[in-house]
Each structure stands twice: as structure tokens, then as C-alpha cells.
Design a protein around this nucleic acid. Sequence first.
DNA 1: TCTGGGGTCCTAGGACCC
DNA 2: TCTGGGGTCCTAGGACCC
Length: 421
Amino acid sequence: MYALADCNNFFVSCERAFQPQLEGRPVVVLSNNDGCVVARSNEAKAIDIAMGTPFFKLKNLVDAGRLEVRSSNYTLYGDLSHRVMNILREAVPDMEVYSIDEAFLNLDGYPEDQWMPLCRGLVKQVKQWVGLPISIGIAPSKTLGKVANHFAKHYGGYRGVCAVDTPEKRDKALKLTPIDDVWGVGWRGAPKLEALGVHTAWDLVCKPENWVLKHMSITGVRTWKELQGISCIEENDEERRQTICTSRSFADLITDKDELALRISDFAGMCAAKLRKDGSAAGEVAIFLQTNRFRSDLPQYYPFLRMRLETAVNNTTEIVGAALALLDTAWKDGYGYKRAGVIVAETVPADEVQGSLFDSVSQEERDRENRISAIMDKVNSNGRTLLRVATQRPGHYADGIRREHCSPLYSTDWSQLLVVK
DNA sequence: TCTGGGGTCCTAGGACCC
DNA sequence: TCTGGGGTCCTAGGACCC
């Protein structure tokens, strides 16, 4: 039996935890670069602000005082997420952090009559200790947990916790769940299923397995089983990511190669640090550049280049070097670059790297680079990039990214808090 | 003027092997 | 003119998630 704990309107709730004047008001949080809406309060949803709306379309609402807006503050959200997860883990150690605002708690081993009081207690505790509202759905599969969570979130009568733990409750819940609300059925799949006469989760469950396999493939069959309470989505317990990407859009178009090289160095350095954090090394480095696709008046160019490394590495110097070599090939004058990124792939455990006979870098050199990277990690451990290679950008990595409505780092940076006061 | 960032899994099709 | 059968591996692209 699973309990899916999910923070309500997470980014907005994080802002509200420190700015109670936002309570009861329509609030949106924007993506990086103040691009588009990525989180909405219930009041913002009520005035039909869609997920992904470009911010410039909402400026008049903000100017009229009818909408509150905040830039995304991932340092704040990450810190509050940790606090929530620690509370949940304390209560149910067998848990899987699924995303920044969601976790699956494994209730197996807890007596059935304790599920509800345990989860109600967690809702109350997270609100009291962190100031965030959460909802919990209890069910025998993760997909049904999502369904239960949806009811907990949208109907006040459940007081934050809904259990779909009997066949009767399950059938009733499935009949009330539109097919496009089902976890695993996306915006492309839903219209297709609608056309085939499947409008609710219940309609899908009523189809035979071979029908589901034919129209939805193997992943659809898993969803179909999960909706019947047969758990078949396992935890991804692989701690090593297979690919790691660091990318950003820029506030202004970049037309200077050296300027772009600074950003690419930064992204590559961040990828290398993420690799080391995972205990991984990458066998491939790739970069991509993108012009502004909305500017039909300007020439467009979307290069994606990659190179295999002789030996898998995770030190900053070599990853940055590879990325800059790719930039040399990818760069073309005459374009305005709006977005760029670095991807490291083909990851392997750092302590199981296969050496190469033909490696151009000696083991001594690499050991030295690895030691330097280890020192960088220690010095940079408070989240700030104080130590960097010379091709990286001076100043904070977020330079060049628009964040005009950003809250202070309330929970992690006392100096900023005092300045605001 | 202004439109995000970071992942995983599955499938189809091509290249290649015998 | 007629032109097999059975595999594996890799890649690109699609679909999904948050």
C-alpha cells in the first residue's frame, strides 16, 4: 500500500510560507528568465490562468493589481522540499522522493487502521513545522495513489487525506476520473482514447488487455493494471542518472562567441559537479545551441553536437574542455543565441571507469585534475560557485538570467533576510 | 521587447552479423 | 525474371513525467 504525499501548488505555497500577504490572492510563479507560468495558486487557476502562459501576456493583470507574481527561487524551494521530505522520512523510512514536491511512502508493515491517522498527522505536522499544505492519497498502486491524491486535494471533506483502499471505492473513483487526469496518459494520448470511446479511467479498465496493448503499447498495459490496483511501477532505485543536462535561456540574445563560451563553461562545470555528486563519470559530452524560435524575422540555427571521451571522466577541467571544443565546431557568426546547454551522457560509476590504452591524458594529470575538482566541491559546498576554472563566468551563475520578481532566500541566507528587513 | 528546465522509457527503422 | 531467415545493436524521435 502506498501513500502519495504531494505539496499543493508547491512553488506558490513556498512563497506564501514567508509572505502571508499572498494568502487568498491569485499568485503565479514564473519559470527561469521570468518566461512563463510554472505554478499557480487556486485563485489564479480560478481566473483561468493556464500553465505555461507567457508572462508578457499577464503583465496587464499584474499592473492592475489583480495578480501577484514571483520569479522562481529554486534555492528556497529546494530547502523547503528537504524539510518536508525529512518529516515524511522520519515517519515512514521506506519512502521514495519522486520529485521536488512529491514522495511515495510505502505503508506495508503498518496496520491498516493506522494509515489514516498516520497520514492525517503528517498533513498537520508539515503545515505546522514548514508552513506548507500537503495532500496524501492512499492506494494499493502508485497510479491509484495519484487518483486518491487528486480527490484529497480537490475536496475539502477529505481534510487532506483520501484512501482508495477497497474495490468499491476504487470503482467509484475510476468512474469520476477523466481519462486525461490519469497518470501516464498525456496530452497526446487522451484525445486518441477519447476518440476510441474511452472517457474515464473506468472506461479504460473495462477494456480487455489486448485492446490496451494494441492502442497504448506496453506502458499502457502497466497503467491499466495499476488502475485495477495491481502494482507494477517499481521504484527507480538507480541513484545514477544516465544523462545530466544543464541549460538556460538567456535574457538577451548572445551574438559574441566569447560571451557564449562563458555560459557553456558554466553549464559544463555544473554538469561535472552534478556527476561527482552522483558518484558518476561521463563517457560522452554534448552541447546544443538555440536561436530564438519565436523571432521568425531572424535566421534560425539549432546545432546539437556530441563527442565521445576516450575515458569516462567527471573533473571540471576535462568536461569544460570538451564542451568548449564542441562550441568551436558549432559556433556560427551571424546568429543571436537565445538558449544553450551542456549534456553529459553514457555515465558509469566513477570508481569503475574503464581506462583507455590510447588516452591522451596521463593518469597523473587526471589524478591532479580530480583532486582540484574535489577541492572545488568542498569550497563551493554552500551552493555558491566561489571557485571555478578561468573560462567560467565571474559572479553568480545566474548572471544574465532575468529574475525581476524574486523573493529573498528566506530559509538559507540570513544576510539577505536582514537586508530585506 | 517578452515564451523554462530536467529527466526516463519505448518503438521503429537502419546497419550490420551469420 | 527469379532474390531467405534470423538475429543484435544503435539511433532518432516520440511520449510521458515533474
